[in-house]
Simulated scan of single mutants.
Amino acid sequence: MHLGSVYRSSSDLLLLKNRSRKQPEEGKKRGGGGFTKLCRLSPQLEEFLGAPEMARTEVVKQLWAYIKEKELQDPSNKRNILCDEPLRAIFSVDSINMFQMNKALTKHIWPLDSDDVIPVKTATQKEKEKKQESEEEPDDPGRKEKRQKTGNKGFMAPLQLSDPLVKFLGTGENALSRSEVIKRMWDYIKQNNLQDPSDKRKILCDEKLKELFDVDSFVGFTVTKLLSAHFVKS
């Protein structure tokens, strides 16, 4: 009986050790799920990637695909990224290393269910605001307050749409915000399964998209550039 009890105690002890080893591993798996959760993107990042919502892992993946495609890594130090105009619009710097980039992305990726988000201002926007402040008349205190309320609505402002885009959307609307058009475009792409199964970044155009963009295929983050020709300047 005494030996049996020792045996059971040893077995119990081994079982407890195995459980204690598994628990941290399970915790790590649960904790990592946050990076694959769908998130809202800032207007700057949405314009670059062509989608209003995306998981952080997918954002990073597409950013690196763009960086490598455009050969933006510093040849003398691959960890440094030499920003072109689209990347400057997001990060507001001429160069950034991979660790700084991941930190800077937190300002552009917001919880999907959060309404309490802070618009990210680019370096150009900040310069314009400083210039406007210096030109403001001292006896007009309401002018600054009015600009603060309307200054970040440019991406959401309705724009006149081209006739081919109106026809493509099929709703009869001839003016929509850039972000709404991009959202509907990605909805259409996903509903019609137009992403290349071997590379989700590549869009395989159906007849409607071919007629609109005059291409057989395109990379997802270039959808904004393709759409720019269909926003009529007033």
Rank of each mutant, 00 (worst) to 15 (best):
Q132T: 01
Q132S: 06
Q132A: 14
Q132L: 14
E133F: 07
S134L: 11
S134W: 07
S134F: 02
S134I: 01
S134A: 15
E135W: 01
E135M: 11
E135V: 00
E135A: 13
E135Q: 09
E136A: 08
E137Y: 10
E137F: 08
P138M: 00
P138E: 06
P138Q: 08
P138F: 08
D139C: 04
D139Q: 10
D139T: 10
D139V: 03
P141R: 03
G142I: 05
R143Q: 13
R143T: 06
R143N: 14
R143C: 09
K144S: 11
K144Y: 04
E145N: 09
E145C: 00
K146I: 01
K146D: 02
K146S: 02
K146E: 05
R147N: 02
Q148S: 13
Q148M: 09
K149N: 00
K149C: 00
K149T: 01
K149L: 04
T150A: 06
T150Y: 07
T150R: 11
T150M: 10
T150N: 14
T150V: 10
T150E: 10
G151S: 12
G151Y: 02
N152Q: 07
N152V: 01
N152M: 06
K153F: 05
K153H: 03
K153A: 12
G154I: 01
F155M: 08
F155Y: 14
F155D: 15
M156D: 15
M156E: 15
A157V: 01
A157G: 03
A157S: 14
A157N: 11
P158F: 08
P158S: 13
P158W: 09
L159Q: 15
L159G: 04
Q160M: 11
Q160P: 00
Q160F: 04
Q160N: 12
L161R: 10
L161F: 07
S162N: 07
S162D: 09
D163F: 03
D163Y: 03
P164M: 07
P164I: 02
L165W: 05
L165N: 08
V166F: 04
V166I: 12
V166H: 10
V166S: 10
V166M: 07
K167A: 12
F168C: 01
L169S: 10
L169A: 09
L169M: 13
G170A: 07
G170W: 09
T171I: 05
G172F: 07
G172L: 03
G172C: 03
G172R: 02
E173I: 03
N174H: 13
N174R: 14
N174A: 12
A175G: 05
A175H: 12
L176P: 02
L176M: 15
S177D: 14
S177W: 11
S179V: 09
S179F: 04
S179C: 06
E180P: 00
E180G: 01
E180I: 06
E180D: 13
E180Y: 06
I182C: 11
I182F: 07
I182M: 12
K183Y: 12
K183P: 00
K183A: 14
K183W: 07
R184C: 05
R184P: 02
R184S: 09
M185W: 02
M185G: 01
W186Y: 09
D187E: 15
D187L: 04
D187F: 01
Y188E: 04
Y188P: 00
Y188F: 13
Y188W: 07
I189N: 04
I189W: 11
I189P: 02
K190E: 15
K190L: 12
K190H: 13
